[in-house]
Nucleic acid binder design. Structure first.
Length: 728
DNA sequence: GCGTATCGCGTTTTT
DNA sequence: CGCGATACGC
């Protein structure tokens, strides 16, 4: 069974059996049916393949590529599908318009936006920027945040800018879901209004505005509607359960002329309601479009039957059942394994050990993935894998352009492209010494009111403490605006100014951040002009990590959300503990059900082997360890669908012996196991990052305090810190 | 007294 | 990493 696994990766792409499947009645219908088509397809049933064949079929029939529109939720998904369609036809699919809702919206708005009263110049802001604006507004409107009841930023943001809320009065949303905030109703409403006018004034647009304006364009601008709708004759939408109401409207309006629309989705995989997705869109589809052909795909071509039995059992328990029982013809006798570790470290070491075993037995690392609910759940495992020398790629969590130093650099670029971008101005001023939030905001509002922000800046009456800083800034901008600089050149100019500040602001860890900046340099250099760089990177930020170099075997660690639509031979789901999954803030009801579907999505990623893991002890808020049970979603499973792979009691000593047998080719060198007895107070030690230091204090089992020459006092744990004793 | 610097602590998920 | 609370400086 395992030796087949090596070949299967290549075969899923263009396996001959796909052709056979295509001849089956279901796929025949999918390919050729005219008019509206709704495909309800379970996990692993070949949703993507469906669309690939449809595209190939249309092109084969002589439909001009530029009349086909393929809408997805990630850019990668669209590229992948077009690539596969091209493989089928033995030619390229260039000309087919494929992309995310947001990128298509951006394209259309830049071309036709003037019908709605804005031209081609607007800046797209991402969620992180929106948070910044909300903060600015909060402070300028005098919200103190002292009241604990006041909504957290994220909740607030979802309320004032979330797409759901645009189709429903905000008052209703607050009444239904956030009734404890009703005292703040007026505050929130005024914040929402200010947010809207702030964006309008400064030529900013966020993710949701892109969609709203696309819809407006189709509804309110007859000439644009005419041009756009006559351009496309066939529309396809992937992951339809992830669309929100606005996107559903857009699909409806886009298809009004030709009625050739095909959507594909799975209601059991709806995990994006927090950003406005509404899986009832699927149920409504046949009502919206007359004479819809509904096609159900229930055979699973991905997982073995034991895995499917477990995943079927997960949705069996959901409150709203859409009785859909997937079946598979793929043989396999590996029952999903359940593992409860004593604590997070035991869980991590179990996973690492298993991965090591699998790898040695011949499963390539890139066919293995570890999935989890939230970004930080994998910290312990990352340390463990690092120690063992495994190369891994983490997906989800912070994107490259979301870290502070990146946003710093980008803000210079964005101000250049859009001098009304107050948020970026603010960020730039905050970097100056002796300038804090208040002063930065003062400068920003003054100069943004002027027509020419740059000269206004030069003439700004600066206080002595930071006058020099402003002068340097003025110089910088005159250089940047000088010639028609390419993005690459602009980066160099900015870095000349920013580098000294950068080292000052992030003096603790700037080497790591510097690598990111190097990457940014490469990315910017590949763009022709600044505007297109800004548009593309804010809509779809490049991943952290070195994507460009081919890195061979690499394990994937990913949040479940970022793993959607993908598959691996072996999947580990970790952190399946009570309070962690479902997330502790999830209340029984809709949110609870969504968490369950999330678990379903995670488990259905596995083709051959599935491991479900949880720690029995976790750090709670007060720094104390708390015993926890397994996730309620695990408890409710039928005992027969998984096998308990035993539990390790308290890890007597965290065995480093397992580490020692690693091959020398791995990148971290084996380091000796040090124990606390090896140190005395006053020992001189060397740390790869903090440099040299002296031991100040030995604390109980395996931690010690070290005074580093350049980085101050740190408390380190022997199991994690890579210490070398220089002199004892 | 206003504003800025510093420290400590708790983190949902994202186009 | 960003937030809040607290401490210092003009």
């Amino acid at each position: 069974m395992l030796n087949n696994s090596l070949e299967s990766q290549n075969q899923t792409r263009q396996s001959p059996s796909i052709k056979d499947q295509l001849n089956s009645p279901q796929y025949e219908a999918v390919r050729t049916t005219e008019g509206p088509v709704l495909v309800i397809a379970g996990a692993g049933s070949g949703k993507t393949r469906t669309l690939v064949y449809r595209v190939a079929h249309l092109l084969n029939e002589g439909v001009a590529p530029e009349r086909i529109l393929l809408l997805t939720f990630t850019r990668k998904a669209a590229q992948e599908m077009l690539w596969r369609a091209g493989q089928l036809l033995n030619e390229s699919c260039s000309g087919v318009v494929g992309g995310t809702f947001h990128s298509i919206a951006n394209m259309l708005l830049r071309r036709h936006g003037n019908y709605l009263g804005f031209g081609s110049s607007f800046t797209i802001i991402d969620r992180a920027d929106a948070e910044g604006i909300v903060n600015l507004l909060k402070s300028s409107l005098g919200f103190t945040g002292k009241d604990k009841q006041f909504p957290t930023k994220r909740v607030l943001l979802n309320m004032i800018s979330g797409s759901v809320n645009k189709s429903k009065p905000l008052e209703d949303i607050i009444f239904e879901h956030y009734s404890h905030l009703s005292d703040h109703l007026d505050d929130i409403l005024s914040l929402r209004d200010h947010y809207a006018s702030f964006k309008m004034d400064h030529g900013l647009m966020d993710y949701d505005d892109l969609l709203v304006n696309w819809k407006r364009l189709l509804e309110e601008a007859p000439e644009a509607r005419q041009q756009i709708s006559s351009r496309f004759s066939h529309i396809m939408v992937d992951e339809y359960q992830d669309t929100n109401l606005i996107q559903a409207d857009i699909v409806r309006l886009m298809a009004a002329e030709h009625n050739n629309v095909m959507v594909v989705g799975d209601d059991s995989q709806s995990i994006y309601s927090f950003r406005g997705a509404d899986f009832y869109n699927i149920m409504r589809f046949p009502k919206t479009f007359e004479d819809t052909t509904v096609i159900k795909l229930e055979e699973n071509y991905r997982s073995t039957q034991p895995i499917l039995s477990l995943t079927n059992d997960i949705i069996r328990n959901s409150a709203e059942k859409y009785t859909k029982t997937l079946f598979s013809n793929i043989e396999g006798d590996f029952l999903p394994q359940l593992y409860g570790g004593f604590d997070e470290r035991a869980e991590a070491s179990f996973v690492a050990k298993k991965i090591d075993e699998l790898h040695k037995a011949g499963t390539p690392l890139e066919h293995i993935a570890v999935l989890f609910r939230s970004g930080f759940h994998s910290y312990k495992l990352e340390v463990e894998l690092g120690n063992l020398g495994f190369d891994f790629e983490k997906r989800g969590g912070l994107k490259l352009t979301e870290s502070a130093h990146m946003k710093d650099v980008l803000s210079f670029m964005r101000v250049l492209a859009n001098p009304h971008d107050t948020l970026s101005w603010n960020r730039i001023f905050l970097q100056l010494d002796k300038v804090g939030p208040k002063t930065a905001q003062k400068i920003t509002t003054t100069i943004a009111a002027q027509d020419d922000a740059f000269t206004a800046l030069a003439e700004y009456p600066a206080a002595p403490a930071w006058k020099k800083g402003v002068q340097k800034l003025t110089k910088l901008f005159s250089r940047m605006r000088g010639r028609n600089n390419t993005p690459g050149a602009l980066f160099e100019i900015v870095m000349e100014y920013y580098e000294p500040l950068f080292q000052q602001i992030y003096r603790d860890d700037y080497p790591k951040r510097q690598k990111d900046l190097e990457q940014l340099k490469g990315i910017m250099a590949s763009y022709e002009d600044l505007q297109s760089f800004i548009d593309e990177t804010t809509l779809d930020p490049p991943d952290t990590g070195t994507e460009n170099d081919y890195v061979g075997e690499r394990l994937i660690l990913s949040t479940i959300h970022s793993a959607k639509g993908l598959e691996w031979d072996v999947v580990f789901v970790i952190g399946l503990a009570d309070g962690r999954f479902p997330h502790s803030a999830a209340i029984v009801g809709d949110q609870w059900e969504e968490e369950r579907r999330l678990f379903y999505v995670a488990s259905t990623r596995a083709k051959k082997k599935l491991y479900l893991c949880y720690p029995k002890e976790m750090m709670s808020s007060d720094r104390r360890f708390k015993r926890v049970g397994m996730s309620p979603f695990l408890k409710e499973l039928k005992p027969g669908v998984y096998q308990n792979s035993g539990e390790i009691s308290r890890p007597v000593s965290f065995s480093r012996a397992e580490v020692d047998h690693q091959p020398a080719s791995r990148k971290t060198s084996t380091r000796q196991k040090l124990s606390i007895e090896d140190f005395t107070i006053g020992s001189k030690v060397e740390h790869p990052f903090f440099g040299s230091g002296k031991v100040k204090k030995l604390s109980k089992p395996r931690t010690l305090d070290i005074q580093f020459d350049r980085h101050g006092l740190k408390t380190l744990h022997l199991d994690y810190a890579k210490l070398k004793i220089i002199k004892s």
